[in-house]
């Protein structure tokens, strides 16, 4: 069993609770132990650093210092949220290459009786650990309910693959790591050219129409490539695509319905866990028709037959002001 220091982040406590629940459910299958960093604080997301620089780095410095103090045979910090991952990794990196910043952050940490030497811990994203440390073969061995026939759009978002200081994901624009994990579960992974495009980030709050267009591009692509479901690995992406899909539909007068789940939930299903245990059923866009395709019923389940699986590929409106997107080349038999 490998041990890791665990930084869950604020979102996983509430809005992304299903991400945490599904991770906890599959950690024994993956043979990993997660030691939560005691009394960790918020990473500041992209907001704190917009207000002040040094306090934002000190905020993350506290987490790194706590992690270093708690490192008991392991010095790897795992973060499942892309923003938390990048903020922690970035703080460690800039403290290493900018001596003035390092001195100032440690000066601030000293006010709380803490100290952190950059490089003491290594910060890695959950997907990185699952792919590189656990491996595709080990995942395949655990699959008891293959997701055969389920068409999944693999969505990475931004901060996990960019800037990717250590080049852990191979490509900052078209990575394949999540695709391989999903394929190992037996799922059909669709082409998804926008797999690392932005979900809208904080624009849902400061200028919703900008966010709606970014959400539309992703949902449109998933729908065009006839994905049953979209798998994500970041709480912000899940929230924007799931909770704002309805608003986006109203804005563009469309009726897309692409359910958004965490990749750990799909892993849990393939490993034979029950949907409730994985936090499935808490989405705003109903995932039940998609899950019925692999014989999974969430309580109060509607059967796949009674649910229309209409496609929207050719349904572009004449007055649609957005840029046209290339149509995917999918053969008829592929789609069924």
């Amino acid at each position: 069993m490998s041990k890791y220091l665990f930084y869950p982040g604020c979102s996983l406590q509430r809005s992304a609770r299903p991400y945490l629940d599904s991770l906890v459910a599959i950690k024994d299958d993956l043979d990993i132990e997660l030691l939560e960093i005691d009394d960790w604080n918020c990473c500041g997301a992209t907001e704190y650093i917009s207000v002040a620089r040094l306090p934002a780095y000190a905020l993350n410095g506290r987490n790194l210092a706590l992690a270093a103090n708690q490192s008991n045979g392991t010095s790897t910090v795992v973060a499942p949220c892309s923003a938390c991952y990048l903020n922690l990794a970035k703080t460690d990196r800039y403290m290493r290459i900018d001596p003035d910043l390092n001195a100032s952050v440690n000066d601030a940490l000293a006010a709380g009786g803490l100290h952190y030497d950059p490089g003491t811990v290594t910060v890695r994203h959950l997907l990185d650990i699952i792919y590189h440390q656990i491996g595709i073969e080990a995942i395949k061995r655990k699959v008891v309910r293959p997701l055969t026939g389920l068409r999944v759009a693999p969505y990475y978002g931004c901060m996990i693959v960019r800037p990717d200081y250590e080049n852990r994901f191979g490509s900052p624009e078209y990575p394949d790591v999540l695709d391989q994990v999903l394929r190992a579960l037996g799922a059909t992974v669709v082409d998804f050219p926008v797999k690392t495009h932005c979900c809208g980030g904080h624009m849902t709050q400061i200028s919703p129409p900008v966010a709606y267009e970014l959400i539309r591009r992703l949902i449109y692509a998933a729908d065009s490539y006839q994905a049953d479901i979209l798998a994500t690995l970041c709480p912000m992406c899940q929230l924007n695509l799931d909770a704002y899909q309805d608003d986006m539909n109203k804005h563009f007068a469309t009726d897309y319905s692409v359910p958004i789940v965490y990749f750990t939930q799909l892993m849990g299903l393939a490993f034979g866990h029950e949907p409730q245990e994985l936090g499935l059923g808490k989405e705003m866009v109903d995932p039940r028709p998609a899950l019925a395709k692999v014989g999974v019923a969430v309580e109060g389940m509607v059967s796949a037959e009674t649910t229309s699986t209409k496609r929207h590929s050719q349904r572009r409106r004449k007055d649609d002001p957005s840029l046209p997107m290339p149509q995917p080349l999918i053969k008829e038999e592929d789609a069924s």
């Binding site: 992209t46 960019r162 800037p163 900052p172 624009e173 932005c198 980030g201 904080h202 624009m203």
Partner: peptide, 8 residues
């Protein structure tokens, strides 16, 4: 939106 496309 902090997508880092420009940066890379």
């Amino acid at each position: 939106v902090s997508c880092y496309y420009c940066t890379i």
